[in-house]
Computed example of a mutant assay.
Amino acid sequence: MKMLKEYLKEKKEIIEKTIDTYLGEFNYPVQIAEGMRYAVLNGGKRIRPVLVLMTLDLLGKDEKLGLPSGSALEMIHSYSLVHDDLPALDNDDYRRGKLTTHKKFGEAEGILIGDALLTHAFNILTEKNEGLISDKKIVEIVKLTSSYAGINGMIGGQMVDIESEGKKVDMDTLKYIHKNKTGKLLRLPIEMGCIIGDASKEIRIKLEEYADLIGLAFQIKDDILDIEGDFEKLGKPIGSDAELEKSTYPALIGLEESKKLLDEIVEKAKTIIIENFSEERGKILIELADFIGKRDN
């Protein structure tokens, strides 16, 4: 796991430097400019943009080709958190151990800061990728991003999640919520890397299977941490899912069964990499699956 921690630290620094440069290109209106930087650069693991770079490394391509797409994806992820934390949704005061964006800047400002991050992400996907990758690849990435971040992905999952609060949902509904609310934005970076890195159809299918599994593992672990986690490590209140009566795996199948399912999913993800790539090339993705299953924040 030491190798992965060093890898994540190194790539996180590269990604944050890139995002800092992109956001440093404007400073007015002040509240929006400062709020965008606060929302994106105020902590976080950067798993999504790192996955873009990991995929390119796996394919033997220059990771610099993925920096604009990874940075844009992190802005979309950050916008979703800013809006999730708003009073109308999860009503959270803390994120990553610090005040949520709307608590720091104001509720109306929080809405606009989230809007600005989402919109600017597409500016980065087009402007910063121009001359770096082909126009055809840019169009494909924009098309995929708008789908996975919207009604066919994250927003669709969030909507069904809200509609399911206080209700006993079936497994199909729970799978839909997790696949779309969380899973699509963890699948997207791997697909971005496959597009940029010219992955074959066969390799892309295998990596997409891996992506779906770690996306599900990530959400199940989130559900478990909301019960067993620690505020100091998570940086946000524990028990908010139960308080809001959200649909989660522990609520549907129990905590211990959720842990067993998590272990099974992590092993399936690792097996895909082991069976399709050399140990040296696939080592980081294997370690990442373990990391997602064992993380404490």
Rank of each mutant, 00 (worst) to 15 (best):
I14C: 03
G293D: 09
P237A: 03
G157F: 01
D20A: 12
L185S: 05
L81S: 00
E109S: 07
L262Y: 05
I274N: 10
F231D: 08
Y79W: 06
L262R: 03
E256V: 06
K143F: 15
G66D: 06
G254I: 03
E267H: 08
L225E: 10
K104I: 02
I274K: 14
K270I: 13
G229W: 00
A269Y: 05
I14S: 03
E279I: 14
D290G: 15
L23A: 01
K5H: 15
T21N: 15
E243G: 08
L252I: 08
K128M: 13
I284K: 05
I19P: 00
N42A: 10
I133A: 02
I253S: 01
K103M: 03
N123P: 09
E287N: 13
M171Q: 15
T21L: 11
T182W: 01
K2M: 13
L288S: 02
R187S: 14
S78L: 11
L65W: 05
L86N: 02
T182K: 01
K259S: 13
V30G: 09
E257I: 08
T101P: 00
E107W: 04
S278R: 12
D57K: 03
V160R: 12
D212C: 14
F26Q: 10
K61Y: 09
I162N: 03
Y7I: 15
T248D: 04
K12N: 06
M171Y: 11
A217L: 08
G106V: 05
K246H: 02
D230A: 12
A211E: 03
S78D: 15
E165A: 09
E202P: 10
T55R: 08
K268C: 02
I190C: 06
K168G: 11
G239C: 07
D226C: 07
T248N: 06
F231E: 12
K259F: 10
I162M: 11
K5D: 15
I177V: 04
E109R: 04
Y28M: 12
K136R: 15
A269M: 08
K175R: 12
E10W: 06
D290R: 10
Y22I: 10
G193V: 03
R187A: 15
G235T: 02
L4F: 14
H120R: 13
R95W: 03
I162T: 07
A269I: 07
D296W: 13
L188Q: 06
I177M: 01
L53K: 05
N129H: 04
K184L: 13
E74K: 08
I220S: 05
H120Y: 14
T173C: 15
R187H: 12
Q219V: 04
K103V: 01
